[in-house]
Design a binder for these strands. Structure first.
Lengths: 363, 363
DNA sequence: TGTCATATGTTGCTAACAGCAACAAATATC
DNA sequence: GATATTTGTTGCTGTTAGCAACATATGACA
């Protein structure tokens, strides 16, 4: 290593300080001292560094109410580092520009044509981004994502498409790629209220059905989960992917996705045909979940996208068919719930992925 | 932190050096310099520390064959830190005492009664260990292990038993607990030749059927996978666990386990009844694997215990029924094979778990 | 209103660490 | 046997975080 180890240490501490502020919001220097386990004078020096470089701002402290010299409050400067997060869906591209500390500085969205090609989608993203000066960029795509490649996406109808390179061509910059469900899982993990569980499973319902995982407190990067292509009925109908009896076909994912997009949830749930579909789909979901829970043993399952509506409408059904296919010891710890961040989860999580890389690279 | 940060840095480097030697065997100081990215003089100082404390031994260097001063060879002193690893099976407890660097210093085994109680098993372990002076102790149990608790073990017939505390009572010391499959996965990962894949799934066939996972290059600790209780036939026969159609019942796990234990593999495979059972079970395994692969997306699957024999006898069947239930994009990267360490995997991996903790605690 | 207790920021100093450069040692090559 | 080459050793340096003493700013209480 060319860099001296002492400097390395300093960088690590500096990045830890910024990370702490980014994740947990404005704090006093005294609190930072406590949180990082460093000396007051060290925190002072680190804060001076980061203040100099414009990453943080120190304001005169709020009165604590108790005796003693008031602490100076430290907070991130949102404009100091910005990350662009894009979510690609069927029919829609959404952009958020997020600042250091997690504030959303800009939003934009644009429609996408049906059956759009990756390069065209990338062009739309370029238009949305429009030269915004961001330090990192992350794209969330629903499906099986491997590095820059979208290996398979039911929702977009893409298979083995190099969307990462298309984004590079269209925007002139490198994009990190994640799958929508993993992004949402990261979002809930870092900014939602799922902080407690070390093993989190996020299910995302769109035109297809994908899953994202946090394992032992770390987002599982590098390989995503195409849960919609879990085969639940070996003799079932053929799926576009070539297999038979895929979960997303058996559950009627596209119908749900449309229903949630086009009608109000209340009207949709009132429909008697829909009600029966909901029950049947809830059952199907529960059984599929049984396999997934047995195979991955999570602490918490979150239902995102239209799965949220389905779960809310059929929680009892889901639970009982889950119970028929999992050991009680697995269910004991398991919590089922809906995401706290709603539809913003994927964008927030994607941005968070960018910030993690950014802050890590400061070391 | 009470400790100065500079000392912390030293400890980290010292532990990294020892870790490097433990994992990759004897190396010259020049190689260590390269591997750790530290300066020659730093390596010298660290080696002096560890030599002083007795953890390593420096011998006069082997002649490299090329010009230059010969390098001094550094190696772990096996006796300097020892870990006891125990594997509990139906009918048998096996012990290895492993030294720093991975050398097996002692072996012992003892029969266990059928339907043994945890406390009795712990007593047998105490007898096997017999006051050996080990720095850490790890027990591998087949089933769902959560901290000191065996939540469910088909093989031992235990449910929610506090085996960890029983071991503490019987041996007077703390035991780390892992499930057999995760231990074996760690073994293959660290000492087998699975070093390449970041996501590894190890299937262990005993009286029951469990799985262990390496995710993104890290063993997934804290929660194991009772794969035998994946429900593959909702209308199937009732299992001892209370569910219906569990994989291990449908596959006839106990019959396989017995067959492998009692007859030679060749004779067993020659049997025409067995041959049909093998085909059917291979098919069943393949379909179950489809669900697991879809839900976890591994790079590599290893078949341990009697699954090794089953896989070798029916690889084509397993592959084809796997193909019917997984996306081609998932299969593209996937490798199926048998473990390099054979039956030693669980013990080696369990010991490795202990060493990781031990070396980590030096920091 | 003033004094004291309390909590926090600041400053100068210290111990320890890793890196560096110069030197010493030990081998291969010619 | 002379030289090139690689590696270990030694003394020195720059940087770091911790510490202690001091300065600063508030609340509590008389």
């Amino acid at each position: 290593m060319a860099r001296p180890a002492t400097e390395e240490l300093r960088r690590r501490n500096r990045s830890a300080l910024l990370d702490q502020l980014h994740r947990h919001g404005p704090q006093t220097r005294a609190e930072l001292t406590e949180a990082l386990g460093l000396n007051r004078s060290t925190i002072g020096a680190l804060a001076a560094d980061l203040s100099q470089s414009g990453h943080i701002r120190e304001t005169t402290g709020r009165s604590t109410g108790s005796a003693g010299r008031p602490s100076t409050l430290v907070e991130c400067v949102a404009e100091a580092a910005q990350v662009a997060a894009v979510e690609i869906r069927s029919g829609l591209a959404r952009l958020s520009v997020v600042g250091l500390g997690g504030a959303v500085l800009e939003r934009a969205e644009a429609p996408l044509e049906a059956d759009i090609e990756p390069l065209e989608a990338a062009a739309t993203v370029a238009h949305l981004l429009d030269g915004a000066g961001v330090a990192d960029a992350v794209a969330a795509v629903p499906g099986l994502v491997e590095g820059p490649i979208v290996a398979y996406s039911s929702e977009l109808g893409w298979a083995d498409r190099d969307f990462g390179t298309d984004l590079l061509k269209a925007t002139g910059r490198h994009w990190r790629m994640v799958d929508t469900a993993t992004a949402a899982a990261v979002g809930e993990w870092s900014r939602g209220d799922a902080g407690g569980s070390a093993n989190l499973l996020y299910l995302h319902g769109g035109r297809g059905l994908t899953a994202g995982v946090i394992v032992d407190g770390r987002p599982r990067c590098g390989s995503s989960i195409a849960l919609g292509h879990l085969v639940v009925a070996p003799e079932g109908a053929e799926c576009r992917c070539g297999l038979r009896g895929c979960l997303e076909v058996e559950m009627g994912a596209s119908r749900f996705a449309e229903a949630v997009e086009t009608t109000t949830v209340a009207a949709w749930m009132g429909d008697s045909v829909a009600r029966q579909t909901v029950r049947r789909s809830g059952e199907c979901l529960g059984r599929a979940l049984g396999a997934v829970v047995t195979a991955t043993n999570p602490d918490e399952i979150l239902f995102g996208g239209w799965l949220r509506e389905l779960y809310l409408a059929s929680a009892a059904t889901v639970r009982s068919s889950l119970a028929a296919t999992t050991l009680p010891q697995l269910r004991a710890r398991l919590r089922l719930r809906t995401p706290a961040l709603g539809a913003e989860g994927p964008l927030i999580g994607a941005a968070e992925t960018g910030f993690e890389a950014l802050i890590d690279d400061m070391r």
